[in-house]
């Protein structure tokens, strides 16, 4: 009798855990779908080929998943995603450590290989932004996304004044690039 009750309780607990986990996965999937173009854009700006984009995208997903349970909502979900995406890409480029096991696949849309007008424009953007340093690249990405100076400052961990100074310098650099 006791063992029957114990088994019943254990089954119920397992079911509850499974449902909780499924809900968590659904919520996570929804958030990623909502922000996927943002994450892809960060990966693209820190990569040299589509395989690396996929690798970085997956590392970001894994880091997001790892931090998902601990996300307390102190910042907005988009700020949280920006931080993890930028930190993952910067760390990956700096460390060049053995990457996690990732799936190799061709992207449905490959901005490195496609030859249409859009792809050419995108490659031009990649070429320009890739000449900037890692921090400058992050700041210009956040600015292009339309984030306020306050939000950029919060994500980067610098003052609002510093953001505006850095943006002026980045603009100068971009201007010099186009003059060359």
């Amino acid at each position: 009798m006791c063992s029957f009750l114990w088994q019943e309780l254990s089954n119920r607990r397992n079911n509850q855990d499974r449902i909780k986990m499924e809900d968590k996965e659904k919520e996570f999937t929804r958030i990623v779908h909502e922000h996927k173009s943002r994450i892809y854009t960060v990966c693209y700006m820190f990569s040299d080929d589509s395989d690396q984009v996929a690798d970085l995208f997956q590392e970001i997903l894994i880091n997001l998943w790892k931090g998902f349970s601990g996300f307390r909502g102190d910042s907005s979900i988009s700020t949280w995603i920006w931080r993890i995406s930028l930190n993952t890409c910067i760390n990956a480029l700096k460390k060049k450590v053995r990457s996690l096991e990732t799936v190799r696949l061709n992207m449905d849309i490959d901005p490195y290989e496609d030859v249409d007008e859009e792809a050419l424009q995108i490659r031009q953007l990649h070429k320009r932004i890739n000449q900037l340093g890692l921090i400058d690249r992050s700041i210009i990405l956040l600015w292009l996304e339309g984030l306020s100076y306050d939000e950029i400052a919060a994500i980067m961990g610098i003052s609002v004044k510093n953001v505006s100074v850095k943006l002026v310098r980045i603009r100068e650099k971009l201007k010099n690039m186009s003059n060359k």
Binding site: E25, F28, T29, V32, H33, K36, S37, R38, Y40, T41, Y44, A54, F57, Q58, L61, I62, W65, L100, E101, T102, V103, L105, N106, M107, D108, I109, P111, E118, Q121, I122, Q124, L125, R128, I129, I140, L144, L174
Partner: peptide, 30 residues
């Protein structure tokens, strides 16, 4: 640059198949 950026984002908005595969793999390797 802003114009090019919006083109890039719109393009990645259409990326579906790879996102699904990467998502499944990431969730499997929790």
């Amino acid at each position: 640059i802003r114009q090019q950026y919006s083109v890039l984002k719109a393009r990645f908005d259409r990326q579906e198949i790879v996102t699904e595969k990467l998502m499944r793999n990431a969730l499997r390797r929790k």
